[in-house]
Design a protein around this nucleic acid. Sequence first.
DNA 1: TTGATCGTTCAAAGCGCTTTGAGTTTATGC
DNA 2: GCATAAACTCAAAGCGCTTTGAACGATCAA
Lengths: 341, 341
Amino acid sequence: MSLKELSLRLGLSQTTVSRALNGYPEVSERTRQRVMQLAREMNYRPNPSAKSLATGRTEHIGIVLPIEKNLFVEPLFGEYLAGVAQFLAESDMDVTVIPTPLSQEQKVYEQLAMSGRVDGLLISSPAVVDSRVASLAATNLPFVLHGRTQCEHPYSYCDIDNQGAFAKATRLLIELGHQRIGLINDECSLNYANDRYLGYKLALEQYGIPYDPSLCTQGGMTEEYGFNAVAQLLMHRPRPSAFLVSNMIFALGAMRALRQHGLEPGHDIALIAHDDHIPYLQADKFDPPLTTTSSPIRRAGYEITQMLHREIEMRSQNQAKQCKVLEVDLVIRGSTRIRKV
Amino acid sequence: MSLKELSLRLGLSQTTVSRALNGYPEVSERTRQRVMQLAREMNYRPNPSAKSLATGRTEHIGIVLPIEKNLFVEPLFGEYLAGVAQFLAESDMDVTVIPTPLSQEQKVYEQLAMSGRVDGLLISSPAVVDSRVASLAATNLPFVLHGRTQCEHPYSYCDIDNQGAFAKATRLLIELGHQRIGLINDECSLNYANDRYLGYKLALEQYGIPYDPSLCTQGGMTEEYGFNAVAQLLMHRPRPSAFLVSNMIFALGAMRALRQHGLEPGHDIALIAHDDHIPYLQADKFDPPLTTTSSPIRRAGYEITQMLHREIEMRSQNQAKQCKVLEVDLVIRGSTRIRKV
DNA sequence: TTGATCGTTCAAAGCGCTTTGAGTTTATGC
DNA sequence: GCATAAACTCAAAGCGCTTTGAACGATCAA
């Protein structure tokens, strides 16, 4: 069922049928109704490739997926994608996931800008200095970064206030009397992890508490790493009396380590985790319920896609970049119930 | 940089350039080299929409993502997608994720068959009787089902042997002396969960152990549900002496519940989980290491995509459907160490 | 009545590629 | 030297849509 066939049956030109279907005003209402009617009956769908070729838009946004890295395979990716999808469903677009060997990542980003495969790009998990952003900023393919990075050129981004969040959390612990606070962080080459680290350090400084680098660890997001890191820090003397962990997977491992050492979180020791709201690991369902810095990543996915959509619509008028920083709540629960004495 | 421009610079026709680039034999080697050379220098990328329009292939496979359901937002989706991506990277294809409100799911599947948006479709998490499969089987859009379902028409699928796996696991427990075995399962409306249930029941039958429906529970994949289900079953008298849980998230909750009741898995009570190999939750890193029915879902993603690819290539010759059932290993570890006396 | 205006429709060009069918050149065999 | 085949190249059509610019008839003001 093509436009041509449809227009033949209707005794109209393709022009008129196309316009009727796309809501152009120069078609009489009677004609439009006839067209729509038949289109519905025939179950007509315009061919997307033909449409793209003619309009130059694909109605697809792209996400590059590095196949070796586990970056995207994290529990967070699903939630993030769900948010992205939620927005796209509203504006009738799709997402193209572009699987790419790590070695070719840079090249793929460059090509994407030329090829017109997608109308825009979402980029995740930036490094502290991220070359992808720099090279994309030089093209005119719309993109929004999920996070921030150091880059000379301006670019649009949507990030959460990682630094503020971890400063807040650290201050809470300090005010509860903790001086030796272990930080179990994601890899600090990633900007968000680095920001969290900076927030932690900032809070210590503000209270004049000496910063001890041996209390700061970083590693890949696995339950095992959370366990090992906490277990190891528990050997330090004087022992840390509180832990700040960068995600819920770490939190699982941390809980296990603490319990194994006979320590009851919220009772003998304080624990705060960052919570991205993974549906199957809810902080308030932990035992004890976990105090968290809380920021739904699904919402971030929704918002960033909205921003990208705007970016695409406005492509011609090259307007100012959009920058959004989402606040992070500090949600106090049982795992910090006890004041250190 | 279009074909036209490229051919002008080379002083060749578009035909020749196109053929040179696409490896057709009727181009001299000298010409081909010249063409490839300039194409590389100019960083030429054929426009995908134009290519699709001309060839009728998009080089995209589709995955419909129901935006409300958490089905895809499970920890497994990322791993599965990673496997899909891994294969696609090898054959230079992309995946189109099509976000869809649950209410429109059926319609979207129908449209997909008409519209030529994708060359083929991957379908996941079938219900015991799944209408998507029935309606797709009526079209000529290639698709492969991840799992199985009851359907009159033949269709291609790739599944794991859920029934066999859970029968094996149950038999192990029985042979260790357990008679009252709790089953913490995913929703049995899903075919894979139902199969696991059938496997469990089958093994009981084989050993002449009476089946007690009150020992079988089903629920959504959250840590909390795993916890609650086990906690509740522990109240039964006589108390179950072993648990079979359907995923690693449940296993987390189960461990927590057991410990809270003063039971040490592998010592006071036996525990087997199904393990899809989520990278951040590894069964052998649990304490004690978990006995599992083990089947990497990433591999399944790879295999099913390979099958779909074959299906697409062979579309014209309508050959027999492909059916593959992956074996599931039973990996014995510490959580079933102790023989019941 | 005339010319301008509006509302409605259309033919045709164009988007960037592949592919058909034909044309041109060069090598091969007799 | 000539016919035949092989090797190479090309012009043009076609994929299914949008969009430009023109055309047509009806309406209206002068």
